[in-house]
C-alpha cells in the first residue's frame, strides 16, 4: 500500500515535469484528468461498499460448501453466482478452486467459477457501467456468461477424455501382463 502511494507520487512528478516542458497541453490534460476523477469519485465509495458487504457476508467456506456438491445446470448457475459475489483478485480464488477439486466438484463448475470470479464480479460491473455505458456492459456480460459456460463444459470434456485415455492405457497394460 505504501509502495502504491510512492508510485503515485512518482507519477505526479513525471506528469508535472512533462507538463512543464509542454505548457500548451496543461489545459487539456488537467481538464481530462479532472473529469475522470469526478466520474470515478461519484461511484467509487458505492462500489467499495458493495465490495465490503460481499466480502463479509459471502465467506469462502460457504462458497466451497455449496459449490462442492451441486452439478448440472444448477451447478453452472451457482458457479456463476458465487463467482460474481465474493471479491478480491483472481489469485485468492485459486486455493478455493483447488480445495473444490479435492472435494470432487465438477471441473466445469470450477472453471466457470474461476472465470466468473475473474470477469463478471458485481462491483467491477458497476464501474464498467459507469465508464462504458449500459449497452456495452450488458452485451459483454451476457456474451461472457454464455461463452464461459460453454468453456467450462468443454474443458471438463477434454479432461475427461484424456483421463479415460490414460486409464484405458494402464488397464490395457495390466491385462496384457495377466495374460
Amino acid at each position: 500500500m505504501i509502495r502504491d502511494y510512492i508510485l503515485l507520487g512518482a507519477t505526479l512528478i513525471v506528469a508535472a515535469t512533462i507538463l512543464l516542458i509542454f505548457p500548451d497541453r496543461v489545459d487539456i490534460v488537467t481538464t481530462t484528468s479532472w473529469d475522470y476523477f469526478l466520474e470515478m469519485m461519484v461511484i467509487l465509495p458505492a462500489v467499495m461498499v458493495v465490495m465490503g458487504l460481499f466480502t463479509v457476508w459471502v465467506s469462502k467456506e460457504t462458497v466451497v460448501k455449496y459449490l462442492g456438491k451441486t452439478s448440472g445446470i444448477k451447478g453452472i448457475f451457482l458457479a456463476i453466482l458465487f463467482g460474481t459475489l465474493p471479491t478480491g483478485p483472481l489469485y485468492v480464488a485459486f486455493p478455493m478452486a483447488s480445495s473444490l477439486i479435492k472435494k470432487g466438484a465438477r471441473i466445469s463448475n470450477i472453471v466457470i467459477f474461476l472465470s466468473a470470479w475473474a470477469c463478471i464480479k458485481i462491483p467491477q460491473e458497476l464501474v464498467e457501467l459507469q465508464f462504458l455505458g449500459p449497452k456495452f456492459m450488458v452485451s459483454r456480460l451476457v456474451l461472457t456468461i454464455i461463452f464461459v459456460a460453454i468453456m467450462g463444459v468443454f474443458i471438463e470434456w477434454m479432461i475427461g477424455l484424456s483421463d479415460k485415455k490414460n486409464s484405458s492405457k494402464s488397464t490395457g497394460g495390466e491385462n496384457g501382463a495377466s495374460i
Binding site: D4, Y5, T11, T32, Y36, F37, M40, L44, G52
Partner: peptide, 20 residues
Amino acid sequence: AVKSFFRILPPVLIIIIVIG
C-alpha cells in the same frame, strides 16, 4: 469498504493521470 477505498485510491489516481 473504507480500507479497500484507500487501497484502491493510488492506482485509481495513477490511471487518471495516465488517461489525462
